[in-house]
Amino acid sequence: MSEIVLKTEGLTKHYGGVHALQDANFELKMGEHVAIMGDNGAGKSTFVRQITGVERRTRGKILFYGKEVNFDGPLDAREAGIEAVFQNLALADDLDVPDNLFLGREIIKFNLGPFSILDYKAMRKATQEALVRTAVKIPNIRNPIRNMSGGQRQCVAIARTATFHSKLTIMDEPTAALGVQETAQVENIVRTLKEAGEPLILISHNMRQVMDLCDRIVVFRRGRIVANLKKEETDGQDVVAYITGAKTQPEYEGAA
C-alpha cells in the first residue's frame, strides 16, 4: 500500500504577478484519502487545476504513479486516470444522466470520426450499473440534469468518477452547495470509494467532514503548503491555527 499515486515537486503557478501557487511538494499514497484545506485564495483550486491539466503550471514536476506527466488538457489527465469533480459541477444542464456521464468519451457503435454513431443502450446500461454501485438514487436518468436537485447533480458528477475506475479522484468542495441529507449522500459515496481503496483528494471547508472522511490534511496558505497533518495527531483547532497563519509546521517555516 505504500506505492505513491501522486507526487508533485516544486509545483508553481503564477498568474502574471500573482503567485497563486509556490513550490508545492505533495504526496498521495495508494488508497489514501487526503484533504486539502485553506482559506479562500490559498491556492487549493489552483493546485488541483495544475494536476488535472486544466491549466499549465509555471514550473515544477508532477509524478503520477512514479512517471512524470505533462497533461495537455483535462482529457489527457482523464485518460491517464485522474477524475475531477469541480466546484461548478461541469455538467451540461440540457443533457440527461448517461449523456453527462459519458460526455467527451461516448461509447460508439460505428466510428465515423466526429459523426460516429452513439451507442445509447450501452451507455444507459453502464450508467445504471454505476448508480447502483455508488448507491446514487435518481428518479429518472433520462431527465435532463436541469430538473434535478443540487444533491442529485452532485451525485451524477461523482458517479461519473466511479464509472470509469479512476486511478485518482479529486473533489473540489463537493458538498459546498448541498443540504444536510444530500451532503450525507455524497459522503457515503466517498466512503464507498475508501472501501474500494481508491485514492482521493478532497478540497473542503467543512472540518467535520474532513475529520470524518480523510486520513491526512494538507493546509495551504497564500499559495504555499504550510502543514501536513495526520488525522490522529491533530484536531480542529490545530488545523484552524494553520489555516489562519497562527501556526506553521517547522519544515515549511522557510516557505511561509
Binding site: L75, R78, A84, N88, L89, A90, A92, D93, R105
Partner: peptide, 11 residues
C-alpha cells in the same frame, strides 16, 4: 448547454 463543462469533459 455548458461550454465550460464541455471543455472540462475534454471536448
Amino acid at each position: 448547454s455548458n461550454e465550460a463543462a464541455a471543455r472540462m469533459s475534454g471536448i
